[in-house]
Nucleic acid binder design. Structure first.
Length: 464
RNA sequence: GGUCCCAUCGUCUAGUGGUUAGGACGCUGGCCUCUCACGCCGGAAACCGGGGUUCAAGCCCCCGUGGGACUACCA
């Protein structure tokens, strides 16, 4: 059993491609088969090495390893040309000298007159030979039907008369997609072609080519597309579509994989899956037939789940680039780990974490103007001064110890813990929203707390 | 226009002739509480329409309607 993922290197790996790759990978691992990566770079104009690298990086990040390749389609053009010649020799393909502009005009005319805009067969029986500017076309059967046995959608039948004498080899000598994909899949021994269902209509043409070439036809599985909120094909205007953009936005690969797999596939009521479970449970039969709308909210929820489920070491490793990205010094790993652990339940992404946890790393507290205006006032400065004064003598400097200390202090001063906590929160974090103030104090430590308290007190006293 | 595919809460889905139509995200009421978040308990929310078949249809068939894909010397 052999499968492949065959992206064209004309851009980064996008969400839809990633899901196709994921389904291929899962199905292959499930069956113990071989997963092949092939780069379809026959479009010499749009293909770039940079895109190839980006695609490989994204797959690696997602954990989708391949067993063979990457193979490059452009390196196989000699093989493609040989196969084209074979079809010409056997009368199954022919040279065509029709001018692109004229074909385009004919197509428009046919469409306007309500006829099928297919190739009119001008060169079909002219017995032309190769010449500059000529292309090679497939002699498509005009009668009969071709049926696609799809693992996901079931049997789909096409009347051959609807099909076109498609171009196999372009004027520049390069094969077209529909031909190269057949030759490569066949020669690489691909047994299961799993791809997006935007290819369904290409499949009968490809089957006819398989048969013309004398190859065994593989099994097909066409997975439904991913749409944006407006039900249009997912694109940039729906937000980020690049896998690596999600990494940069602070998503964990497990979250993206888990989200993507549940888009079109399900296993009862289960929502959370480890890779191991997926490999064990995945099946093409359970893949749905209808397109799915990409829902960023649910992805966010899954990401939060994985941020909370990660072992701390692994989470820290993933978070460090984001801390460093904000310019924070994380050489003290133990401290960075404590901060990360403390922030995880309130972070849906690592970017959110880095944005909300700056107070752990910044020397100077960045005060939110509104928060400071409300709490860093002469009315409350007394709370801060008493805490600063008694801080050195707090023996039980733990979450529980500090809570007891603050509660008693509040009572002594005739107020509630709530108010003392809020004032401290603004003094220590600069905001009115933060993790529990006792936890913050424990992690910051007495030294940092004292320094920040002095800063806040000075600010109030000097009217800063 | 033609060909092909698809159709259960707003979204992702479970459901394979008899169910109070289930779960999840989101939304929402409450609890917890030093703020926020987490967590816990509860709520609103769906079978596209019309015909059949059947004792019985979300499940099967047909026709509509709606959405999508393809219709390139792109892949």
């Amino acid at each position: 059993m052999r499968t492949r993922f065959a992206p064209s290197p004309t851009g980064f790996l996008h969400i839809g491609g990633a899901r196709t790759a994921l389904f291929n990978w899962l199905y292959t691992r499930r069956c113990g088969g071989t997963f092949i990566l092939r780069i379809e770079d026959t479009d010499q104009v749009r293909s770039t090495d940079e895109s190839t690298r980006a695609i490989l990086d994204a797959m690696t990040w997602l954990g989708l390893n391949w067993d063979e390749g990457p193979y490059f389609q452009a390196e196989r053009v000699e093989i493609h040309r040989q196969m084209v010649q074979k079809l010409i020799d056997e009368g199954k393909a022919y040279h065509c000298t029709c001018i692109p502009d004229e074909l385009e005009a004919k197509r428009k005319k046919a469409l306007a007159e309500g006829r099928k805009p297919k190739y009119d067969g001008t060169c079909r029986d002219r017995g032309l030979s190769r010449c500059p500017g000529s292309v090679v076309r497939f002699r498509c059967p005009e009668v009969g039907a071709t049926v696609v046995h799809d693992l996901i959608k079931g049997d789909i039948s096409f009347n051959n008369e609807e099909l076109d004498d498609l171009i196999l080899e372009r004027a520049d000598g390069y094969p077209t997609y529909n031909f190269a994909v057949v030759v490569d899949d066949a020669q690489m021994g691909i047994t299961h072609v799993i791809r997006g269902d935007d290819h369904v209509n290409n499949t009968p043409k490809q089957i006819l080519i398989y048969e013309a070439l004398g190859y065994e036809v593989p099994l097909f599985g066409h997975v439904p597309m991913i749409l944006g909120a407006d039900k249009a094909r997912l694109s940039k205007r729906h937000g980020a579509t690049s896998v690596m953009a999600y990494r940069e936005m602070g998503y964990l690969p497990e979250a993206l994989v888990n989200y993507l797999v549940r888009l079109g596939w399900s296993h009862g009521d289960q929502e959370i899956f480890t890779m191991e479970e997926l490999v064990r449970l995945f099946s093409l039969e359970a893949v749905g037939k209808s397109a799915a709308i990409f829902n960023p909210e649910k992805l966010l929820w899954l990401n939060q789940h994985y941020i909370n489920a990660y072992p701390l070491e692994k989470l820290l490793e993933a978070a460090i680039p984001f801390w460093e990205g904000k310019g924070f010094d994380v050489t003290d790993r133990r401290y960075a780990a404590q901060a990360t652990e403390n922030l995880r339940t309130r972070s849906r992404t690592l970017v959110e974490m880095a944005n909300s946890g700056g107070f752990y790393f910044q020397e100077e507290v960045v005060y939110d103007p509104e928060a400071a205006a409300k709490f860093l006032t002469p009315e409350y400065v007394g709370h801060l001064e008493v805490v600063l004064e008694r801080l050195p003598s707090v023996a039980d400097y733990t979450k529980d110890g500090l809570e007891a200390f603050l509660r008693a202090l509040a009572e002594e001063r005739g107020t509630k813990l709530k108010w003392v906590a809020q004032v401290l929160r603004v003094a220590l974090t600069g905001r009115t929203v933060s993790p529990g103030i006792d936890e913050v104090m424990v992690i910051l430590g007495k030294e940092r707390v004292a320094r920040k308290l002095r800063l806040a007190i000075d600010r109030i006293r000097c009217g800063g």
